[in-house]
Design a protein around this nucleic acid. Structure first.
Lengths: 155, 155
DNA sequence: TGTGAAACTGACATCGC
DNA sequence: GCGATGTCAGTTTCACA
């Protein structure tokens, strides 16, 4: 895949909001024919620009109203620890994101839980599977913004 | 909408991964007819359990390889400040998430940027629009896990 | 189960570089 | 010519009643 042009970006902007937009409507918005849109989409899927089409759920309505961020300090500063940590967190479905931060010793985890007891279960499970240097948790009181949409045009 | 049963959860589990699964295939996985699946999906969309169907993009491939978390302390502890802060951050498309954390003075922002210069632009824009008490940024070195999928069955 | 509306597939003419 | 597009079949698959 070459670089994305403005038409590609228009298509992506729409698909990021509504993945189920019919090609006809998409073509109208973008200013291209059905077919041209379709070809571009396929190319971007093949290139991995479009990773997946997914359904987003309301976390509260499926029983996971609480979001928690955990700040973690590694117990050991080596590749083995990281591998074990990565494997453990990837296997835990309540964990939405795991990020190694600048500093090389700090990790950030974002997870969704039902309540405090559920969080404690998550915490206990995690420290049982991987030795932790230090763990602190902050809970989300209010989700002011939450989006999966990436900006594709210069501000 | 009443409570979700196991069949609903099975449907959602699949749709969270592949929103474009045909109803036939979905029915087979779940053990239901096309039609029954379709009715349940419509009901869950109407109830807001399914918020949207979206395309997920590869952030690096659209020119936003850098993820940053900003920790922010409010300049003022009042509703006006929060309203202004919320409005400003919601209007900035590079910002993916904004969370008011426990403590009532701390906010967490997650944003995607092209590079450090881009981050600085974001930072400058933000502090120009809203008075900030304190801002610190941590950059993501490695995305160990990132998922929009919520767990729907007990671990 | 059936019907209409989509998504797909390929062929071919066209326009700009 | 080459690359991208538009149009116009055709077929298949799906959403929906």
């Amino acid at each position: 895949m070459t670089e994305l042009d403005d038409l590609d970006r228009k298509i992506l902007t729409e698909l990021q909001r509504h993945a189920d937009t019919p090609l006809d409507a998409l073509g109208q918005v973008v200013g291209l024919s059905r077919n041209a849109c379709w070809r571009r989409i396929k190319a971007m899927e093949a290139a991995g620009v479009i990773r997946a089409r997914v359904a987003l759920l309301d976390a509260a309505k499926v029983g996971l109203p609480l979001t928690v961020f955990m700040q973690i300090r590694a117990a050991a500063h080596d590749a083995d620890w990281l591998a074990k940590f990565a494997r453990a967190t990837r296997a835990m479905p309540q964990i939405q994101g795991v990020y190694r931060m600048t500093g090389d010793l700090d990790y950030l985890i974002c997870a969704r839980v039902a309540d405090m007891a559920d969080y404690d279960r998550l915490y206990q499970t995690l420290i049982a599977r991987v030795p932790m240097g230090d763990v602190s948790a902050s809970f989300v009181m209010e989700e002011i913004k939450h989006s999966t949409e990436l900006p594709l045009f210069e501000g």
